[in-house]
């Protein structure tokens, strides 16, 4: 038996919003420690890795590890049926071929349940090596979303350069070029408004703006986004999911032919 109850169904809605641009379907691996999802987009350029810890749920029970393959379009349809203030419970029997979503209104006067068919997905898990990154940048998630949106008007690629002074985002294309420089915040009153850079060595990498834009669909999950970069390895874009977990996106760089 698997059962996970979340008082804020809006978290689940936001998580889905954050992954459905990149993935059509995904396997939710449920175990005693929580729910994990790891999937690459069809082109194998980006990877989504999400973790929701069991202790972050209001109730969590998982007697046996289960992997639930879900069509994210169908899951989106179902979660649209939940009001933001509803309590959501996901339930499945061991070896089940369906999952049930139960939505309860805060006053318990309306209770709905939706059963969804599960899919058998061939899944390849990737081993992601633990990496010490040369640069780790934290900035307001809304600011990052704005930068990705603004620069994607110029070109298909965004160059991210990180030095100890700050971080620079650049793009160039047919209409011209654009550079956005963010300096490290000198005095930090509010952490969620700060730009911070932890740098071992400066890094400049080029990425496809289309993917960066897709990652920013997670903006509503967190005030802060963290970018981790090292020369010639995939970028990691991380958003915390409240007190319950995180979503990380990995993006392979573009390199000189």
């Amino acid at each position: 038996m698997f059962e996970a109850r979340l008082v804020q169904s809006s978290i689940l809605k936001k998580v889905l919003e954050a992954i459905k641009d990149l993935l059509n379907e995904a396997t939710f691996d449920c175990s005693d420690s929580g729910i994990q999802l790891q999937a690459m987009d069809n082109s194998h350029v980006s990877l989504v890795s999400m973790n929701l810890r069991s202790d972050g749920f209001d109730k969590y029970r998982c007697d046996r590890n289960i992997s639930m393959g879900m069509n994210l379009g169908s899951m989106t349809k179902i979660l649209k049926c939940a009001a933001n203030e509803d309590v959501v419970t996901m339930k499945a029997q061991d070896n089940a071929d369906t999952v049930t979503f139960v939505f309860e209104s805060p006053n318990q006067e309306k209770v709905s349940d939706y059963e969804m068919k599960l899919m058998n997905l061939d899944q390849e898990h990737l081993g992601i090596p633990e990496t010490e990154y040369a640069c780790v940048v934290r900035l307001p998630a809304g600011e990052f979303a704005r930068i990705c949106r603004d620069l994607s008007q110029f070109g298909e690629s965004v160059v991210i350069s990180c030095t100890k002074e700050g971080v620079k985002f650049s793009s160039a294309g047919d209409i011209g070029s654009a550079n956005i420089k963010l300096a490290q915040t000198s005095n930090v009153d509010k952490e969620e408004l700060a730009v911070t850079v932890e740098m071992q060595e400066p890094v400049t990498l080029t990425f496809a703006s289309r993917y960066l834009n897709s990652f920013t669909k997670a903006t509503s999950l967190s005030n802060v986004v963290q970018l981790s970069m090292s020369p010639d390895v995939p970028l990691v874009v991380e958003y915390r999911i409240g007190e319950i977990g995180h979503i990380r996106y990995y993006l392979a760089p573009k390199i000189e032919d």
Partner: peptide, 14 residues
């Protein structure tokens, strides 16, 4: 000219 790398070149399937 830059070309897009695939994650397969960095991470191994387990």
């Amino acid at each position: 000219r830059k070309s897009q790398m695939s994650l397969d070149s960095y991470f191994k399937v387990i």
